[in-house]
């Protein structure tokens, strides 16, 4: 058994290390991109809600519709749909770099909904208090919506990150790098069941670590 393990890691160890690094790179970069675009969309959606700070029913409906549409396209199809854009932005459609664009785009509506729902958890009385003290709409967004829902935003970020780890494995199917790519090339095409199982174990460990870290941070910063 020991001999088998030594042998196995001797053959595939560096592959798994590289695969893990690639997965983390893809997922981290695309999470950042998704938040960069998702947060402003969430803010705009929140403030344009009926009865909110800047009610714009038409704009609000359009935003909601775009978010829902984005979320209803299956990731595996979205990846193919955005190939021209991916090529235009990165010059490639494969590997780690090629996967960041579709992963990021897929996560934008997801993040927008997640952040908006964190904002919606806030007691409306808190927002009213902010208005009563003469805070501007911008100040209410930054000092109240974002600051007061920070623990919830951290928990949402972990959910996003973990969802993207799952998506990134799917991206392996069309030639992205990372653990999904290894699982498909070795586990699926070459019937190396042990490699397949090893990638699954690594993914499980990654997810656990991300979840634990986020729980820890959220608990630490939540003063309720």
């Amino acid at each position: 058994m020991l001999e088998y393990l030594t042998d196995f890691f001797g053959n595939y160890g560096s592959l798994f290390v590289q695969g893990t690094i690639d997965t983390l790179l893809m997922v981290t970069a695309s999470t950042l991109i998704a938040y960069l675009f998702g947060i402003p969309i969430a803010m705009l959606t929140k403030v344009t809600e009926p009865g909110s700070l800047w009610p714009q029913p038409a704009l609000n409906a359009i935003l909601g519709w775009i978010i829902n549409m984005g979320r209803s396209i299956p990731f595996i199809i979205l990846m193919v749909l955005v190939i021209p854009l991916t090529r235009f932005l990165t010059g490639t459609t494969i590997g780690v770099v090629g996967a960041i664009v579709p992963l990021g785009i897929a996560a934008i509506p997801f993040v927008a909904r997640m952040v908006e729902s964190s904002f919606s958890e806030l007691n409306p009385g808190v927002i009213e208090a902010g208005r009563a003290f003469g805070a501007s709409t911008f100040q209410i967004i930054t000092k109240l919506y974002v600051r007061e829902s920070l623990p919830s935003l951290v928990r949402g970020a972990a959910i996003t990150y973990i969802t993207l780890i799952g998506y990134s494995a799917m991206a392996g199917a069309i030639g992205a790098g990372g653990l999904g790519d290894i699982a498909i090339r070795f586990g699926y095409y070459r019937y190396k069941t042990d490699v397949l199982i090893a990638t699954v174990i690594i993914l499980i460990i990654l997810v656990q670590i991300v979840q634990s870290i986020s729980d820890l941070i959220a608990r630490k910063i939540d003063k309720r």
Partner: peptide, 29 residues
């Protein structure tokens, strides 16, 4: 609005801010 203070039935304090930071809020804005 800044010239008119207001208090509420459920207090509506900012739960992620300390007592001092709560009182600072109207001055901060």
């Amino acid at each position: 609005r800044a010239r008119i203070g207001m208090i509420f039935q459920d207090f509506s304090l900012f739960s992620q801010r300390t007592v001092l930071q709560n009182v600072l809020f109207p001055l901060e804005v």
